[in-house]
């Protein structure tokens, strides 16, 4: 137990030190890089707090996607922050002190950290998710069963949010909104980086294979649609960064991506409608195999996870293409 506390406190201290340094830094490139480091520490903390699926997502999203997007935007805009006048900082400090004080006062009522008798752990739902799910759904990873089956409608909502965000970014930065004075593209000199190209070329198939593994192994270990989608996307981000955007867009044309963005929600909702046609409730996977509920659940979860994976991968990749196109055309 002391081991756990020691590691936990060390990691949290690293996290807070990083956050303080980020807030004091005016060079935004350096701040962005520290954000990547911040994400890595966060992911370690998630592993320590038993949230392996979350750690998976955080690492892929925080380091693989956010950092790339932030760096891309920085190369489009100013990378130095102006000095904020002291007077302007005062309201922030007041708000923070007030909110922080309130939170600490309120924390007296929070349950003890890690205690097995907290309301969270003693709620009857805990037993449903951890024990009964083994008979209802029959897959070991309870995070996947809660995500895709018990709370399937909620996840459909999240997927629609991701879809909407993708459409919003395309509307703001997409090919229809290219700046008028787009200059001719400069071919980047990647000749020096032959080692990088060879290694990336070798890694690409394994990255895509790994993403597929994560997608289909999500029932038994950490993984699932969201994680697989983000890994796919970071694979393509890597490809685009190393081999240039044109080649990446040849491999994955924009129009295909646009179709794929829409495929996910349609497939997900389609599964629900199919369940209704088979005589069950919306997203009641049992109807897929009336004799064997667990088998039906298995089919449903697999379909839903694939839908999530396709949309998340397509949205993240096209967001990256959207930003990277700007970077290339503004040079």
């Amino acid at each position: 137990m002391t081991t756990f506390v020691l590691i936990n406190v060390t990691l949290l201290a690293i996290l807070i030190a990083t956050a303080l340094t980020i807030s004091g830094m005016r060079t935004l490139y350096a701040a962005t890089m520290l954000t990547a480091l911040f994400s890595l520490v966060t992911a370690c903390l998630f592993v320590l707090l038993d949230a392996v699926d979350v750690a998976f997502t955080e690492a892929a999203v925080g380091v693989g996607i956010s950092t790339v997007l932030l760096l891309g935007v920085l190369s489009l805009t100013r990378s130095r922050e102006a000095v904020t006048p002291r007077l302007r900082r005062l309201p922030g400090a007041v708000v923070v002190l007030f909110t922080g004080g309130t939170l600490i006062y309120a924390s007296q009522d929070l349950p003890e950290f890690g205690s097995p008798t907290t309301p969270v752990q003693t709620h009857p739902l805990t037993d449903v998710y951890l024990r009964q799910s083994q008979e209802d759904i029959g897959i070991p990873n309870t995070v996947t069963s809660v995500l895709a089956s018990y709370r399937g409608l909620d996840t459909l909502g999240e997927l629609v949010v991701v879809f909407t965000a993708g459409v919003a970014v395309l509307a703001l930065l997409g090919p229809l909104m290219q700046p008028a004075e787009a200059r001719e593209r400069e071919v980047l000199d990647l000749v020096d980086y032959r080692v990088l190209r060879v290694v990336t070329g070798m890694l690409m198939p394994f990255i895509l294979l790994f993403a597929l593994y994560v997608l289909f192994h999500g029932d038994f270990g950490p993984g699932g649609g969201f994680q697989a989608g983000v890994i796919f996307a970071s694979g393509f981000v890597l490809y685009g960064l190393v081999f240039g955007l044109d080649r990446a867009q040849q491999v994955l044309p924009r129009r295909v991506l646009w179709v794929l963005i829409a495929v996910g929600p349609v497939l997900y909702a389609g599964v629900g409608v199919a369940n209704m046609l088979l005589g069950g409730a919306f997203l009641d996977y049992d109807t897929f195999a009336p004799d064997d509920a667990a088998a039906g659940q298995h089919i449903g979860i697999l379909l839903v996870e694939s839908a999530i994976g396709v949309t998340v991968a397509a949205v993240m990749t096209s967001i990256f293409f959207g930003f990277a196109n700007r970077v290339e055309s503004s040079r």
């Binding site: 020096d192 980086y193 080692v195 990088l196 290694v199 070798m202 890694l203």
Partner: peptide
């Protein structure tokens, strides 16, 4: 073994 020498190499380069 593949990635970390590569990153160190491109960094130094």
């Amino acid at each position: 073994a593949l990635t970390s020498p590569t990153s160190t190499h491109i960094l130094a380069h």
